[in-house]
Design a protein around this nucleic acid. Structure first.
Lengths: 115, 115
DNA sequence: TCCATATTTCGACTATTATCGAAATGTCGA
DNA sequence: TCGACATTTCGATAATAGTCGAAATATGGA
């Protein structure tokens, strides 16, 4: 990951509304949430929410898809993994010690897996 | 870690100059670097650098100590660990899968975690 | 004390980001 | 096609962040 990309992604979640949005869609998993639902839950005016969703999307942290007349936003877990990896690499001075995170299987490959 | 704190820390490194500063002091380790050295290496005017160093310091990502007439800045590894832990927790939906990073010993502690 | 060095603070400015109402766009079902 | 709904785009404004020269502060040594 280039530093420039990391800065974009970091800047995207470095805002309380956007962090809240991101946490919400992360909790929901791959199914995602329609914009309206997010707006309702966080009590944000539609146009403001769009602004923040676009910031998150441009940063690659969330994906967008249409379902009927609603637009569904979902977390892109790979992007967050990449960001965490970037931070840990730079924190550890080049030695990789980053985990990987996925919606379903969380375990760090240790024995049995559920699902 | 509270979301507000995470936002502050994320915002601190979400800037190319500050990310560069942080990466520089991380690479240097606990010994740290004097402000002047950082300014010279990154070719930043002193007053601008101070502005960014203060942002990083307020966010708790770097520490400051005086050595003679220079001020030494060093990375606070625990702070970055906390930030990475926050991100991974929220990325994994509550299941901890965060590593710990230290200047010398890089090994991931597989046992209990202290926060 | 006086000077040189290291860094910060001040102040003025520019640039970017955030907010949100109103109007426009896209989609569905009748 | 029309009307209702979901969401975005537009546009104006407010707020915050970044830049950096000049002046101020702190330290050490002669």
């Amino acid at each position: 990951m280039k530093a420039e990309h990391a800065v974009t992604a970091l800047g995207a979640i470095a805002h309380d509304h956007r962090l809240a949005v991101y946490r919400l869609v992360v909790k929901r998993g791959p199914a995602g949430l329609p914009a309206g639902e997010i707006a309702a839950r966080l009590d944000l005016p539609p146009s403001s929410l769009t602004f923040h969703l676009q910031t998150l999307q441009r940063a690659g942290l969330v994906t967008q898809r249409r379902l009927g007349r609603q637009l569904i936003y979902a977390a892109d877990y790979a992007a967050m993994n990449g960001l965490v990896a970037y931070l840990t690499e730079n924190c550890c001075g080049g030695t990789a010690c980053a985990p990987t995170c996925e919606p379903g299987a969380i375990k760090v490959a240790r024995g049995r897996k559920s699902a």
